[in-house]
Design a protein around this nucleic acid. Structure first.
Ligand SMILES: [Fe+3]
Ligand SMILES: [Fe+3]
Length: 976
DNA sequence: AAGAAAAAAAAA
């Protein structure tokens, strides 16, 4: 007989809720999660691993999920309510619950989830679960361990003796009534589920066990919601408690009837898309691009189950639509239940969210929620505060497979409140986010079972798969191993990859799927092109015909060897060369971008050009000043060029404004609100790598500092980017042209400026420079020549004019890469097949700071603050926006709108030596500490000096000053 | 003396 005085939930309830009730509720919810959120393929995989039919697998998972809190039958746990509810807990002094509390370990206070993992093996063994063989490979120890992980971290595995008598190692579990009740509760739950028989199988593959663990956590959360517990409690009271098997069955029936709605309301579910050709999915695309046509022609015939598709193509060939199309084809072939679209940055994820929402609205067969997943998603207005319009369902017409009109349906894609809480968004049927959100699934982090569950039933698209450093790339490869093992279809989108890198991606996926390396042969990569690898057979499919391009062109690339100096009078100096290159723009008009390596250099280049033009066009020259309304009205070349600066070290709002202006000038001319500056007045944008990211800009000319080949080609993609319709080009500009300023020494050889630090590997710079010099003025044919250029830059054998220097630089680069891969190897999860114990999936000996998706110095968020003459603080130099000492809510906390506004003033800066000098003056007010996003801001106090302008924040030897046109400037005091 | 980028908060 179970004792229903043993409680499961107490806090916030009028009276305690029996543990038995919570176990039954969780089991029933798990059934609904199984039905509603897992795919048939997942059902089949679990069933196969357990050696039972699918319906039986479902019952077993329900049974296990119910058992998750069996460890709450534990003296230390039950005692926890004694203080608040002495009357209820009086039963604990009954003889049967006698327990010597004095002997409980005080050093290691046992928690209930750990008690679950320790007590369960013996209890399952009693039900006939096999116990022969290595404990680590037994199903019952695995189930115990994954249930012990229901709070997010898997406990250590059990020892062999725990199978017979867990009390020997853990007397805290309690004997007598405690042990009896654990058995009784297990038996009662077993009975409620119809006594599912013990499977004879061994432990499940790890990639399945983690999915089951995820199901348990989600079911526990859903069943523990306040309204669920109170409703079930009331229902239990109504039937007179849960003591008898009949009452338990009635309780279970009620719970299972309510459960599907819980799953639905939470926003869990599956997404299924219309199965249609490309044109059906994208009716707005009148003429699909060659890449899209090629994939539609070649892919469907090759797909029969899970696999990986690698698409390599330049931007503008329609990769995104091709990926969404491929995802529906590949997803349908393996019964996938959703989509995860991974992008390199928050900004690109925000953009893609809108596109995927549009795609989902048009092509979903049923409502399915779409989440946006990244660290600042709740600051994205369209996601965080969907307008009532977005909230409504979308009326639309569905046509069935043969194109006839079938029914009119409505789909909704707005994410539920439940899914918006941290860590849950990946459970939505459709999620768009940073790739980091997926990569965290291969890091030993708490609750990564939720990420595993979220990814396992989906189709995963990874955009810009080429764009990560050796560390993050290693994590990506490991993620592919896990996805391969899970049978998750994957689409990888990339710019040019070397054959080696492309092979690495495909091999990682296939090795996860169990294919031996060497059992298949990879063709050399094509650009543009695609390659599909089938997970089950390892067979490879590539397009039968070479893939055409919509943006084929000849690009002229000129290398200009320069001395790296800002002295305009040095004839071979960088500045003089730059001014010469920009001559056409300044004299006759047009749009040019200058891309610098560092922020400081971009700032100096901008200042030097400003000074030069001021000298040339007179002191009234105001083209550099975006605040000048007079200048904005000038269209004549005599006004001197418009000059702008864009880099990452501006306050977020200011950066957004500069970006918006740049988009309005250089954006697609057929887009609304675009006013491309017309000749004769020219326009120059000085920038850093920021404009490589996510911006669809077009320039007549790009002048770039030397950078690795892949980046130069990416930058070159911004020259004459738009066509049909494209802007008209100035007369001086006869071809798309990239001018590369290459810093050389007196000997004419590469001399990497000290100020470039480690931004680019000198090895790649030297190889790139030599390769371009060797080509002389041969134009680069895009896309045909691109693959070869990339291959050559990375070739192990490289014929250099300065082999000794190259050797040293190569060694440095290769060892750096190796170190990064090594670091990744130390922190990331092993492939699922190599996982010894679930414990290592959520626990790591590595330094916590190292368990990250990206390597490198931490970025500090700086908030410039301005003191006026009276010592009052403001957020702007003009003293119009007051510094908020506290938030506007009654308790002094900030609203989301206030936080968003405040973060608009924040400037990111890499951690550096200035950080040590931070003191109290740099700490935010005490009331900010309660806001996670504000607590770690660093204030930069500026002083407004009457008549003398602005004095920046002094931090040790450094002065940090925010100015309108330069952004945050860092200057170092001369050492005396 | 060094780019741009992500993440970190409360879940049962
Ligand atoms: Fe628990
Ligand atoms: Fe629980």
């Amino acid at each position: 007989m179970i004792d229903t005085r043993l409680w499961g939930k107490s806090a916030g309830l009028e009276k305690p809720y029996p543990l038995m009730g919570h176990l039954v509720d969780t089991a029933m919810v798990a059934g609904a999660v199984w039905d509603g959120a897992l795919t048939v393929v997942q059902h089949a995989a679990v069933a196969e691993a357990l050696g039972v039919a699918m319906a039986e697998a479902r019952r077993l998972v329900m049974f296990w999920a119910g058992l998750h809190d069996i460890g709450k039958i534990l003296p230390r746990f039950q005692d926890m309510a004694a203080q608040d509810r002495p009357a209820h807990c009086a039963f604990l002094s009954e003889e049967t619950y006698a327990h010597d509390r004095e002997r409980d370990s005080q050093a290691e206070k046992i928690r209930h989830e750990c008690a679950t993992s320790r007590a369960l093996p013996q209890l399952l063994a009693a039900l006939g679960y096999p116990t022969a063989g290595r404990p680590a490979r037994l199903l019952l120890t695995q189930v115990a361990q994954l249930l012990g992980g229901h709070h997010g971290r898997y406990p250590l595995g059990v020892e062999p003796q725990d199978l017979r008598d867990p009390l020997r190692r853990l007397p805290e579990l309690g004997i007598g009534g405690w042990a009896d009740q654990r058995r009784e509760h297990v038996a009662a739950l077993h009975g409620v589920l119809g006594r599912p028989e013990a499977p004879v199988a061994r432990a499940m593959p790890v990639e399945l066990a983690v999915v089951v663990a995820g199901v348990v956590i989600v079911s526990d959360w859903l069943a523990s919601q306040d309204h669920v517990v109170s409703a079930q409690q009331a229902a239990a009271d109504e039937i007179g408690g849960l003591r008898t098997p009949q009452s338990l069955l009635a309780h279970a029936k009620r719970a299972s009837e309510a459960a599907p709605a819980l799953v639905r309301d939470a926003g869990l579910g599956r997404a299924s898309f219309r199965r249609h050709g490309f044109a059906g999915l994208f009716p707005e695309i009148a003429r699909p691009h060659p890449l899209q046509v090629s994939i539609e022609a070649g892919l469907p015939g090759a797909v029969s189950g899970p696999g990986v598709l690698l698409v390599t193509a330049p931007p503008g060939e329609g990769k995104t639509e091709a990926a969404l199309y491929a995802a529906t084809v590949m997803g349908a072939a393996c019964g996938s239940g959703g989509l995860f679209f991974a992008l390199p940055t928050q900004a690109t994820a925000n953009q893609m969210y809108d596109r995927v929402v549009g795609f989902a609205r048009r092509n979903l067969l049923d409502s399915a929620q779409v989440t946006l997943l990244h660290g600042s998603a709740d600051l994205n207005e369209r996601y965080a505060e969907p307008s009532p319009n977005d909230d409504g369902v979308e009326p639309r017409v569905l046509s069935d497979h043969d194109g006839g009109l079938r029914e009119s349906a409505e789909v909704s894609v707005v994410a539920s409140r439940w899914l918006r809480l941290r860590g849950r968004g990946i459970l939505a049927p459709i999620a768009v986010g940073t790739v980091d959100q997926a990569l965290m699934g291969v890091l030993p982090l708490k609750r990564n079972a939720l990420r595993h569950l979220g990814l396992s039933g989906k189709t995963v698209v990874v955009d810009e798969a080429h764009a990560y450093d050796a560390y993050t790339h290693a994590l990506l490869l490991r993620l592919l191993v896990w996805l391969g093992a899970m049978g998750v279809p994957v689409v990888l989108l990339s710019a040019t990859l070397t054959g080696e890198t492309a092979a690495g991606l495909v091999e990682a996926y296939l090795s996860g799927a169990g294919r031996e390396p060497g059992s298949y042969r990879l063709p050399p990569p094509a650009y543009p092109g695609w390659l599909y690898a089938d997970a089950r057979s390892g067979s490879l499919t590539a397009p039968e015909e070479p893939v055409g391009s919509v943006r084929a062109r000849r690009l002229s690339v000129d290398v200009l060897p320069v001395t790296h100096t800002y002295d305009a009078t040095a004839p071979d100096g960088r500045l003089a060369a730059l001014i010469r290159e920009l001559h056409g723009v300044t004299a006759e008009g047009g749009c040019a971008a200058v891309i610098c390596t560092t922020v400081a250099e971009a700032q100096r280049t901008y200042e030097a050009l400003r000074d030069h033009y001021r000298e040339h066009y007179g002191p009234a020259y105001a083209g550099w000043d975006d605040r000048s309304t007079d200048d904005a009205a000038r269209q004549d070349a005599e006004a001197g060029p418009r000059l702008r600066l864009l880099h990452a070290r501006f306050p977020a709002r200011r950066r957004a404004a500069i970006t918006a202006e740049a988009e309005s000038w250089f954006g697609r001319i057929d887009k609304e609100g675009i006013r491309r500056p017309e000749p004769p007045r020219g326009t120059v944008l000085v920038s850093t790598q920021v404009i490589e990211q996510s911006l669809d800009l077009d320039f007549d000319l790009i002048v770039s500092d030397l950078a690795p080949m892949a980046l130069l080609l990416q930058r070159a993609g911004r020259v004459w980017r738009h066509s049909e319709p494209g802007p008209s080009r100035p007369a001086w500009c006869r071809e798309p042209r990239l001018a590369v300023l290459a810093p050389v020494g007196d000997d004419g050889r590469l001399s990497v400026p000290a100020a470039w630090g480690d931004v680019y590997a000198p090895s790649l710079l030297q190889r790139t420079l030599e390769l371009m010099e060797r080509r002389k003025s041969d134009p680069v044919r895009v896309p045909e020549d691109v693959q070869q250029l990339i291959d050559e830059v990375y070739a192990p054998e490289f014929t250099s004019t300065d082999p000794d220097a190259l050797m040293k630089r190569d060694i440095k680069r290769l060892t750096d890469d190796m170190a990064r891969r090594g670091l990744a190897g130390m922190v990331m999860l092993p492939p699922p097949a190599m996982v010894g114990s679930l414990h290592q999936l959520t626990t790591s000996d590595a330094d916590e700071d190292l368990v990250a998706t990206r390597l490198g110095a931490e970025t500090v968020q700086l908030l410039p603050v301005f003191y006026d003459s009276e010592g009052k603080r403001w957020l702007d130099e003009a003293c119009t926006i007051p510094f908020p000492e506290r938030g506007s809510r009654n308790d002094g906390r900030f609203t989301r709108v206030e936080i968003r506004a405040l973060l608009g003033h924040v400037v990111p800066l890499a951690h550096g030596p200035w950080r040590q000098a931070c003191a109290e003056a740099n700490d935010p007010p005490a009331s900010w500490r309660r806001e996670p996003r504000l607590a770690r801001l660093v204030l930069l106090p500026h002083r407004i000096v009457a008549g003398d302008g602005l004095a920046g924040a002094v931090l040790g030897d450094y002065t940090l000053t925010l100015t309108h046109s330069l952004g945050l400037v860092i200057s170092r005091a001369q050492k005396s």
